[in-house]
Design a protein around this nucleic acid. Sequence first.
DNA 1: GCGCGTTTAATTGTCTGACATTTTAGACAG
DNA 2: CTGTCTAAAATGTCAGACAATTAAACGCGC
Lengths: 215, 215
Amino acid sequence: MNVDERLPSEAELADQFQVSRSTVREALKRLAAQNLIRTQRGATGGAFVRRLSYDEAYAQHITTSTLLLSMNAVDFQTACEARFALERACAPLSSARRTPDHLATMRAEIHRQAQPGLSDERFCDSDVAFHRALVDGAGNPVLSYQLAGAVEAMQPLMNMITFTQRNRDVIIGLHTRIADALEMQNGADADAALAELTTYTLTLGEEAMEARARR
Amino acid sequence: MNVDERLPSEAELADQFQVSRSTVREALKRLAAQNLIRTQRGATGGAFVRRLSYDEAYAQHITTSTLLLSMNAVDFQTACEARFALERACAPLSSARRTPDHLATMRAEIHRQAQPGLSDERFCDSDVAFHRALVDGAGNPVLSYQLAGAVEAMQPLMNMITFTQRNRDVIIGLHTRIADALEMQNGADADAALAELTTYTLTLGEEAMEARARR
DNA sequence: GCGCGTTTAATTGTCTGACATTTTAGACAG
DNA sequence: CTGTCTAAAATGTCAGACAATTAAACGCGC
């Protein structure tokens, strides 16, 4: 079945498979839920094979990853390690290919992170946006897609951390160093800064876990 | 809603939302298709919130990634670059943590790849199995999950390549070098070998594309 | 009281037929 | 040729019925 090809009508399918139209409809709803078909009403309507769009797959991947992490109690350390390992894979590509647009986004998010009175949640939002710009800088949509799951799904875990001003200063410093390195096209330093950010984030995570355990 | 919590019965939902039971059922089928609920028949039956299992999410991620690559005509170079960049992110972790089991799997697949008369398709299967062992060696399920999409979804693209004996010898040599490096816990050399494998695979891909264009 | 069939009730699964809604294609008048 | 109306085709929704399945309640002998 090729993209945009039309499936037989519900009545025809019901007849063909010797089931009722209700049953056919439930099956079609299943396919629709998986974004495999779209339905259209009217005379020339019906169910059509759908092209899986990048944006939909991206959103779905994030949802699934987030659910997977939260429902299976993946620990902070494992998720964090995976996230930064993958991001570091992007660093050399991103330092070679990042556009002024990516750099501008990163600078803007750093500026936002430094604003006083920013809630922890907003700080995390901005953090995700910063790292997404870093990943997108590699200019490889497949990479961006695969990493979306790791970066965005970490956000609920990151939200458990309380970011003190001191914490934020350290993170902002490393973010600045990463942005600088990418601007200078210095992949090695970007990688080094990401490595530091990894260990620092792991430390923060451990502290948050301990604080949570004491409560 | 927590895991294993029960939703109201179809009749209750229909009553609550003032729609017919058919409509409720179609909606429930949608949720079931997304693996969000499971239904159970009988007296104490109903729809229950489902824990998203790692294996299901893994399988779904591969399916979606494969569809995304094939339906959106992602070029070989982009997919290949993403795949190897991500794999290289695993190399240091895998060289530190790989178990004898992972090494044995890699050796076995290398042996299989050297067998004469192996079809191109089987060679690709084995290649994927080898790289999966490499990734799993990092001992991070989140990493394995995220990489599954990149590694497995590449397979259809890899299957377009015709592997001559000479090609295979080069790849097997690099695979052996990777396995040796992991065994010696030499992350740097594993990374270097993966880098070589990246450029070599890209070359093969380009040749295959040219051959296909000439036809 | 305890074990063991039997019944009963609740729930999902399926079928049937009907009607509403939407959309296109074609007939028809101007 | 153009605009309008109508018919047909398709999905969307509804109501009601029955089948299938499962667990709990019941009754009964012991």
